[in-house]
Design a protein around this nucleic acid. Structure first.
Lengths: 212, 212
DNA sequence: CGTGGTGTTGATTACTTTCAAGATGTGTGG
DNA sequence: CCACACATCTTGAAAGTAATCAACACCACG
């Protein structure tokens, strides 16, 4: 666990859903300021983490600094499976983020709860492979926006907690290309930019088709 | 299960390792000729599969036919986690392949055995994301060859059970690009092509560095 | 010994990155 | 509350990489 962790706080869960794991609500919530590390590659893994509020990026680096974000995690989502005795990945708070640290006893009945979560993560990763391997810039951004919209309840307005750099590193694109695609979608009347980190989806069906 | 499945056969495990799952050796082995379907997207999922001999490709398709192979599975490896009540993926035998079908009872103690396998698959998928998102054609092919060599015991000679098309669809490249990179590696003296589906690694360190 | 499928090579095109400059926002301090 | 300053984002032009289109070579098979 990072030294940058500031404080343990206890507060009610922001999302109404019942805890993903039995007893999760009994665990303390840690606060991570924007940009701080939650766990690092090479650290001994063990606990799982549940986002209470804020957003988390999980990524891996090449020797020369190229970065691939494998997943974003929003409120209510569980992460930390990127572990196999040792973490293969870094996890950072994107914004001010509250994380419930779940120190799981590796009991058999716990595994039964963990398996569906792990499988969901694997299926997400493999779907992401299709995006990175076979879709162009426009399709990647469209798929990303549809995904973000769905994870925020399917509303027209979508909040992007992350920077263009993060989006680029998630989609395997540069920030310039991401920016150009946003402009293109805006010019086509598919989206409307409300702010840098907020937009409105005007033609969901078109966006959906783009992302296949 | 596909109608193309020809016969159930019983034969000793080709790889010496102990069964990945308790009682796996008690399950029957099915034979799939080259190119036949093991499971399809949309099929109800349930069993896991263990490759006895041959090789399997797991992939997903876009509406227009673009294909992304998310994983190859060789003798001794377990697959079929791409399931969440429904399969999200297709699985096909690449060559004549024997597959042990493991009809798992979803008991708690089974989950404990399954979790590590599922996690390994997820970590593999997320490492593959880095390759597809952030590496160029040369780096992708190099990483692929190093991976294949390692999975075949680290020998100098590597057998590729799959076609250039399969390799391309795994690495997010066209067959032409894959072919050109092979030629480039050959001209550099990094590899030697023994046949279309067989090569020798002459400079492992160079290859390793290329794949980062 | 054809013949079809696979693989290689070449020329051109298309897309994304890179490099560069300017615009827009955000946060801070006055 | 406004102004400044830094970071982030957008836009443009040039370069680079991989895709596409096309032709040919090579096997493997019947």
């Amino acid at each position: 666990m990072s030294a940058q962790q500031i404080a343990n706080i206890e507060l009610p869960t922001q999302h109404g859903a019942s805890p993903v794991l039995d007893g999760a609500h009994l665990q303390p919530v840690s606060f991570f300021p924007a940009g701080t590390e939650i766990y690092a590659q090479g650290e001994k893994a063990g606990p799982l983490y549940q986002v209470e509020f804020g957003a988390v990026r999980v990524y891996r680096l090449l020797a020369d600094g190229r970065r691939q974000i494998s997943a974003f995690h929003m409120a209510g989502e569980t992460f930390g499976f990127e572990a196999d005795a040792m973490h293969h990945f870094f996890a950072e708070a994107i914004n001010a983020t509250g994380v419930r640290v779940l120190r799981i006893a590796p009991a058999a009945d716990m595994s039964r709860q963990l398996l569906p979560l792990a499988l969901k993560g694997m299926i997400r990763a493999q779907e992401h492979l299709l995006v990175l391997g076979r879709q162009n810039a426009l399709e990647r951004v469209a798929a990303f926006l549809v995904d973000m919209a769905e994870r925020q309840g399917g509303l027209r307005q979508v909040d992007l907690p992350m920077s263009r750099m993060d989006i680029g590193d998630y989609l395997g694109l540069t920030i310039e290309t991401v920016s150009r695609v946003f402009t293109r979608l805006k010019d086509k009347g598919v989206i409307r930019l409300l702010g840098l980190r907020s937009l409105e989806i005007l033609k969901r069906d078109v966006l959906q088709d783009m992302g296949e």
